[in-house]
Design a protein around this nucleic acid. Structure first.
Length: 483
RNA sequence: GUCUCCAUCGUCUAGUGGCCUAGGACACCGGGUUCUCAUCCCGGCAACAUGGGUUCGACUCCCAUUGGAGAUGCCA
């Protein structure tokens, strides 16, 4: 049931960062196209000149590449439907808007710009819907105003009567009364199209078959249909996605935004989340494979993705589950790859510990979900923290400060004489050290505490001695009991 | 205010009228393995918002209520 005619697009605006919600929209658009053997198009929506951010387009390219969402067409890959940057399509929008005016589906409006209403805060926003007064202007007045160079916008003319319905592949049929639809602006005073207008024009011109976007756009979709109908264009399939929510301090939820934490792809990767884990996680936010499986690579998602798995209800972003997923991906990494990636966080480079990094990394790999957890887990290797003798007390390991002192008293001379400082030699020595009086568990516990100065460590006593080396290990053991 | 949408464990979700004493995952809590911890293995806690219908039978269909979210920009 593949359909190579499918074309979807991702249309971010160049703001300089990639919200995970946008990335998820891109992911689903990509999957809808790729699961059918279709095309995935990148379009840049830069119609708001006030928001221009230098280098922002590069961020988009880099993010898509890092996430593996390779586009088939875009500003850098002409597929014959360009240009793929909206600011380069200005004249097209103007022509289209004027066409609608000619057809009676839009009109010139010379009213003053409505300033944002800042009076109303809290839960009582006020409708500022336009009253449509310029609809009544006669042709002569319009022509005169135009000739006089009077500033204007072009508005969509929507009949007050009747209803407009549309079909969505996720939400089904939705009907809205026309009287609640206002005469939205199509072409702005500066000649740029609005988001809603540019989308309709571009999606049609670029042959987009499935319009994939967030469900916050559901209420504006009837206006799209009216536009398509006015042009006489075929209406595409709509795929509205459930919103991604964040939990607020007061326990409520709202659209995921910066105040909820790290919400951009860049934030997340810089905190150590792997792109594969992020993609995997957001794929599951609002979509289900309908199996018990949780781990999916991008190619695997392409294989099993289906629109019917899309959910309608908003989904709360759960950093704990993302962290778990990240840990799963870290465990799957080849040991060398993990060691290379984790080295900066551990700070071993340029220290005496450096030669033992592969060992230390192997211990860390199953113990971290995030690279950012590494510094705290390796700090004791760089310098033993201050600790109290009470740390030696542990019932299960049959140890207390007195026992520890006895252990160290025999361990230090034995270790000083040990010929080979390797795992087997150290293990043999320590396990036979206690003799009749000291329990093996006490030996391992006391030695490890003396070495590390903390009760929980990545790795056991022997491994820590290997990482620290003979000299540093003995130094720590000698100063272990009077600390 | 108005409009639209949504509603299964704390969270992500499976479930399309009988297979449900509702399954999986995260988190949490136990137990086992382990030179500590982690990994790994085993187990536990925990949900169909409420009220009406429809039906032989509702988590599944319909209506209402309640709750939540989104929209209501010359932002995208």
């Amino acid at each position: 049931m593949s359909d190579p005619q499918v074309r979807t697009r991702f249309a971010p605006s160049p703001t300089g960062f990639m919200h995970v919600g946008n990335l998820r929209t891109a992911l689903y658009a990509y999957l809808i196209a790729k699961s059918q053997g279709g095309k995935f198009v990148l379009r840049i929506e830069d119609t708001d000149q006030a928001r221009y951010v230098p280098g922002a387009v590069e961020v988009i390219y880099k993010t898509l590449a890092a996430a593996g969402l390779e586009h088939d067409e875009g500003p850098d890959k002409d597929g014959g439907f360009g240009p793929y940057v909206q600011s380069e399509r200005r004249e097209l929008y103007r022509t289209c808007a004027e066409e609608l005016v000619a057809k009676g589906a839009a009109y010139y409006c010379f009213c003053d710009k409505q300033e944002p209403d800042e009076e109303h805060e809290g839960d009582a926003p006020v409708s500022t819907g336009y009253d449509g007064r310029c609809r009544k202007l006669d042709a002569a007045t319009v022509a005169a105003n135009l000739a006089a160079g009077k500033p204007y916008v072009i508005r969509q003319k929507i009949d007050r009567d009747g209803t407009t319905a549309f079909h969505d592949l996720v939400f089904g049929d939705i009907t809205i009364e026309n009287k609640v639809l206002d005469d939205q602006i199509l072409l702005k005073r500066d000649g740029m199209p609005t988001y809603n207008f540019a989308n309709v024009v571009d999606d049609h011109m670029m042959g987009i078959t499935h319009v994939v976007r967030g469900s916050e756009d559901l209420p504006s979709t009837p206006k799209y249909n009216l536009l398509y109908q006015a042009f006489g264009w075929e209406i595409p399939h709509y795929v509205h996605l459930p919103l991604i929510m964040g939990r607020n301090a007061d326990g409520t939820v709202s659209k995921l935004s910066k105040r909820h934490g790290s919400v951009s792809f860049e934030n997340l990767t810089s905190e150590g989340y792997l792109p594969e884990a992020i993609v995997n996680y957001i794929a599951l936010l609002g979509w289900s494979s309908k199996t018990d499986r949780e781990i999916f690579t991008l190619p695997e998602l392409c294989e099993c993705f289906n629109i019917s798995g899309l959910n309608k209800a908003p989904a709360v972003f759960d950093y704990a589950k993302l962290a778990w997923l990240n840990g799963e991906y870290i465990k799957k990494l080849a040991p060398e790859a993990f060691a290379a990636a984790a080295l900066p966080a551990a700070g071993f480079a340029g220290t005496p510990l450096e030669s033992q990094w592969p060992l230390a990394a192997s211990l860390l790999q199953s113990r971290v979900n995030l690279y950012s957890e590494i510094p705290e887990k390796t700090a004791f290797l760089h310098a033993r923290p201050d600790f109290s003798a009470e740390l030696y007390t542990n019932k299960k390991s049959k140890c207390d400060p007195a026992v520890a002192a006895a252990v160290l008293a025999v361990a230090i001379p034995a270790l000083e004489k040990l010929a080979n400082w390797d795992k087997d030699s150290l293990m043999n020595l320590l396990s036979g050290l206690g003799g009749e009086t000291l329990h093996p568990k006490s030996v391992m516990w006391a030695v490890r505490i003396a070495l590390a100065g903390q009760s929980v460590t990545p790795g056991g006593a022997v491994e820590i001695m290997l990482i620290l080396g003979r000299e540093e290990s003995l130094k720590r053991l000698r100063t272990g009991i009077d600390a």
